[in-house]
Design a protein around this nucleic acid. Structure first.
Length: 435
DNA sequence: AATGAGGACAACCGCACAGAC
DNA sequence: AGTCTGTGCGGTTGTCCTCAT
């Protein structure tokens, strides 16, 4: 049976709304609320379909929506979230307060999409076009995208299922949203592959599959854990929550552990959250260990209850789990503020990439198969750490060297996914139009 | 000044889903 | 359990505006 139309089409006005109609709708809703949209037009004296009234209200007339030019930060957020979520405008809109999904969708289609396209970046995959072409040539790209999509959708579902539990465990004051910080302009020469989460994930699968067909994941194995080097290619960032956060955390799911896997990475039911505040950006595996990984120049090796790791001029402190968290809170918060000063998402990325997230609470609980981190330090701050199966390193430097291949190898610029920090910054600067 | 192309944005369409009945 | 209704969502279309010719 076909679905009955929401209202009789005949005699109803269509097309652009007039100011008079807007006023009628606003006045009615302010006085009575919208109630049943179907019944609203007649009650409000409008010759419009209820659905049309609803759309007009939610996308345009609602008082709590912001209109006008998108800010730089909003643009960055849209681009990054689109790379993560695809055309899921409502999910993207949930991270942009006071913006509607329709507005974001239109802005993407008319501005951002074209801008990326002009820069030689495929707006669908967020990869340089040449690379997309290469990947599609061997037919593997679609497969990888499908794997990613599968993981992503699973994450969304998992978030819904686990949100209550997660929020209970970590008790954030509000739900976080992702906001990307400004990237310092750099001179741009070329377009290296991006190092965002999607890229790292896809590359890891891609490399594995390309190099070993026997290892190719069948469709039924979309949720198998990524290979070890995938975890090395993935990175995390510091994160915090904020009292003004308004929208749900976006998540990426890391698949269930497969005991038959040849790698040691075990990511039991971890959810990688993408969260941030105006000051901080982060990816986090929900788990039970604690890390603080702030960047940078505020690094002070004399800070006694942290271990210092340097990488690419950034620093990270690994929280000593034996310390009383309460005693560290203030210092942590002070240290974190430097991220705002540096205002650079890639600084945060590099801080975590180079950070010693390996030797962690596992020492205490003998649970070596988990290195994901997520700890609440205060009402305002939730700390995150990157995950890997790295409980065996004697020092953070060794760990970072293992992960990055950069610290103890004479300063080589190699890094995960074959892309350096500078290249990565260049990528984002170009992608965001700051060249 | 007239006109056509293209861009920007609002509005619409149709499907999917959840909840009420 | 099946149907209906309200709503959310993503894709598409329509309309208006700007600018070049």
């Amino acid at each position: 049976m076909g679905r009955s139309p929401c209202c009789e089409k005949t005699g109803l006005k269509r097309g652009p709304w007039t100011p008079e109609e807007d006023q009628k709708l606003i006045a009615f809703i302010e006085k009575n609320g919208h109630g049943s949209w179907r019944a609203l037009p007649a009650k409000a004296g409008l010759r419009r379909c209820g659905k049309s009234c609803r759309l007009r209200w939610t996308n345009y007339l609602r008082p709590d929506i912001k209109r006008g030019q998108f800010s730089l930060q909003e643009e960055q957020t849209i681009i990054q979230l689109h790379a993560l979520l695809g055309n899921r405008w409502s999910a993207i809109a949930s991270h942009l307060p006071k913006r509607t999904d329709n507005e974001i969708k239109n802005y993407w289609n008319t501005h951002l999409k074209k801008r990326l396209d002009k820069m030689g970046i495929d707006p669908t995959t967020h990869k340089p076009k040449l690379e997309s072409l290469t990947h599609s040539k061997d037919g593997s790209n679609l497969s990888h995208m499908a794997q990613w999509e599968s993981a992503r959708l699973e994450a969304e579902a998992r978030l819904v299922r686990e949100s209550k539990q997660t929020l209970t465990l970590t008790s954030p004051p509000t739900q976080p949203r992702l906001i990307l910080n400004k990237i310092t302009p750099l001179q741009q020469h070329s377009l290296p592959p991006c190092l965002d989460v999607l890229k790292a994930w896809q590359n890891s699968w891609s490399n594995d599959d390309h190099n070993n067909n026997n290892n190719k994941c069948p469709s039924s194995s979309l949720l198998m854990p990524p290979p070890k080097h995938a975890m090395h290619g993935m990175y995390a960032m510091m994160l915090a929550t904020d009292h003004d956060l308004e929208s749900p955390t976006s998540t990426l799911c890391f698949p269930e552990t497969n005991n038959n896997s040849t790698n040691n990475v075990q990511m039991n039911s971890n959810v990688l959250n993408v969260v941030s505040t105006n000051n901080h950006v982060g990816l986090v595996f929900l788990n039970d260990t604690s890390y603080l990984l702030p960047p940078t120049t505020l690094a002070d090796s004399s800070v006694d209850d942290f271990t210092l790791t340097k990488s690419f001029g950034t620093c990270a402190y690994k929280h000593n789990a034996d310390e009383e968290l309460a005693e560290s809170d203030k210092r942590i918060l002070d240290t974190m503020s430097c991220l705002q000063d540096h205002d650079d998402i890639m600084v945060a990325v590099e801080a975590l990439r180079g950070a010693g997230y390996g030797s962690n609470n596992d020492h205490n609980n003998n649970n070596n198969d988990k290195a994901a981190t997520f700890t609440r330090f205060s009402d305002d701050v939730v700390m995150a750490g990157f995950s890997d199966d790295v409980p065996h390193f004697d020092s953070n430097e060794d760990l970072a060297a293992e992960n990055m291949g950069i610290i103890n190898d004479g300063g080589s610029s190699s890094s995960c996914c074959g892309v350096s920090f500078e290249e990565n910054k260049d990528y984002w600067n170009t992608m965001l139009g700051y060249k």
